[in-house]
Write a protein that binds this DNA or RNA. Structure first.
Lengths: 185, 185
DNA sequence: TGAGCATATATCTTTTCGATATATGCTTGA
DNA sequence: TCAAGCATATATCGAAAAGATATATGCTCA
């Protein structure tokens, strides 16, 4: 699935600017399972405009530069349906944290303890983010079953990861702490 | 973290060809939290060769083309240590399956039921893969604490995801099944 | 016996990332 | 008070990476 399809999908919930789409994949529901940069979003929107999949409306704003608000067209909806009618690609999970844990013999002393704590905090923050952002969704959309489902899925995985880190902290951190103490004394 | 660092890290476990490195990030321990394509691995190895971070040895093979076996050099180990001495980037999780669930109003009829079952099977297969591949690690490496830790982490997250899918199958699939039955009758 | 798969290396095109540029208003602390 | 920094907003450039494809060979199995 490419950024085009992602943008079309988001635009079915509400019209939005490139900036707003980026915020959604960064902070809102989509953030748990999607990623896209400005460098891919803006060109995708421009191209789809020329192809008639979306339309633009310039919204004047006091002071700030004009906001280009994109809306999905009927052709765009058809294109989205076509793009979604395929088997989804396999999930991809990338974690530099886990890579560093694997490579911890090559890490500077005490680094592992630092990143381990930071990772637990990161997971706690993400969990809180899902729970507190009452809606976690594009403005105006409430009680969307799909959104609640993916939010719940994210919560389940994040919780499991956090629990695992809590349970295995000793075995990963202790040897380092012991070594540091030995060096100090 | 880039593919260079990834390759250097893998080469600390054992010397390997580009093909073997790809297999490791595809099938073995690394597959749970890392990804890289031939299009990034081969150029990275060639470049690091010219920079003296790795060395190559051509291994003749009956019939098959020569295998280029790469080994990490002392300079390479230093470079790896430097690259690892930074805070790891945030975890990234991409799931087209979850995106399709969010967009399921636009999916062809019955598609959601198909991909839901396929996703559960995929998670079961991944879990079994972690459990059965006795080692799940580069040849010769056993009882590596870091590897057991990341395998356990993967298991914890995958199990949580599978459990969530099992518990919420009804609410996602039922409406579709009901609609299909209504159409048939 | 021939189709397809596994091994093995490599490259090309397209996509995407990450950093940066530009412009402006608002907030906040020295 | 006023400058620094942050949030909003759009856009592009170069580098990195993905994904597809090319090439060559041997093995397996229907």
């Amino acid at each position: 699935m490419n950024v085009r399809t992602l943008c079309l999908g988001i635009l079915t919930f509400q019209e939005a600017s490139g900036y707003e789409i980026k915020k959604m994949v960064e902070d809102e529901v989509f953030s748990h399972f999607i990623d896209a940069s400005y460098g891919s979003i803006y060109p995708a929107l421009t191209k789809m405009m020329n192809e008639g999949l979306v339309s633009v409306r310039a919204e004047e704003q006091a002071g700030k530069p004009d906001k280009k608000v994109y809306s999905i067209s009927q052709t765009g909806r058809q294109e989205l349906a076509n793009a979604l009618a395929v088997d989804p690609a396999e999930d991809k999970f990338k974690s530099e944290f886990l890579f560093q844990v694997m490579m911890r013999e090559f890490l500077p002393k005490s680094h592992i303890a630092d990143i381990y704590d930071a990772q637990m905090q990161y997971l706690r923050d993400e969990l809180e983010h899902i729970e507190t952002s009452a809606c976690n969704c594009p403005a105006g959309v409430t009680n969307h079953q799909g959104m609640e489902f993916v939010a719940g899925y994210g919560k389940a995985c994040l919780s499991a990861g956090l629990k695992y880190l809590e349970e295995h902290k000793q075995e990963i951190i202790e040897p380092v702490v012991a070594k540091l103490k030995a060096v100090e004394s």
